[in-house]
Amino acid sequence: MTDYIRARHPCPENDGFSDDIPDEQLPGCGETVLIEYREAPPVEKGDIFRDTCPSCKRHNARLEALAVHRDD
């Protein structure tokens, strides 16, 4: 079973930014990405979570779940 999350990356932590800067003050790539999970996705629609952004490759990026698709 493969599940997917469609997420927006509104505030990525670009290289060189300190972790002390609040997420809402960081510039964003604004990309909508599709993340594949072999296990059940850890979030529901509307949740804010951290994962690797497939677009800009930032690890521990702040993402907003727009849709969660589960192949049942």
Rank of each mutant, 00 (worst) to 15 (best):
M1Q: 09
M1A: 04
T2N: 08
D3I: 03
D3V: 00
Y4T: 11
I5A: 06
I5R: 01
I5T: 01
I5L: 10
R6M: 15
R6S: 15
A7P: 00
A7Y: 00
R8V: 10
H9R: 13
H9F: 13
P12C: 14
P12K: 04
E13R: 11
E13P: 00
E13D: 03
E13H: 02
N14E: 03
N14W: 07
D15I: 06
D15G: 11
F17G: 03
F17H: 08
S18L: 08
S18G: 09
D19L: 09
D19F: 11
D19H: 12
D19I: 09
D19G: 06
D20C: 04
I21G: 12
I21P: 12
P22G: 11
P22R: 11
P22M: 05
P22Q: 07
D23K: 06
D23I: 13
E24V: 11
L26H: 04
L26W: 02
P27W: 08
P27Q: 09
G28T: 05
G30K: 04
G30T: 04
E31D: 14
E31W: 05
T32Q: 08
V33D: 06
L34N: 08
I35E: 03
I35N: 14
E36H: 07
Y37I: 11
R38P: 03
E39Y: 14
P42N: 14
E44P: 01
K45W: 02
K45C: 12
G46F: 01
G46Q: 13
D47Y: 13
D47W: 04
D47Q: 15
D47H: 10
I48D: 02
I48W: 09
I48S: 01
F49W: 11
F49A: 12
F49P: 13
R50T: 14
D51L: 00
D51H: 15
D51W: 05
T52A: 06
T52C: 09
P54L: 00
P54M: 00
S55T: 10
S55L: 02
C56Y: 02
C56Q: 03
R58Y: 02
R58I: 03
R58G: 03
H59A: 11
N60A: 06
A61I: 01
A61D: 01
A61T: 00
R62V: 10
R62E: 12
L63C: 13
L63H: 10
L63N: 10
E64K: 07
E64R: 08
A65Y: 08
A65Q: 08
R70G: 02
D72N: 04
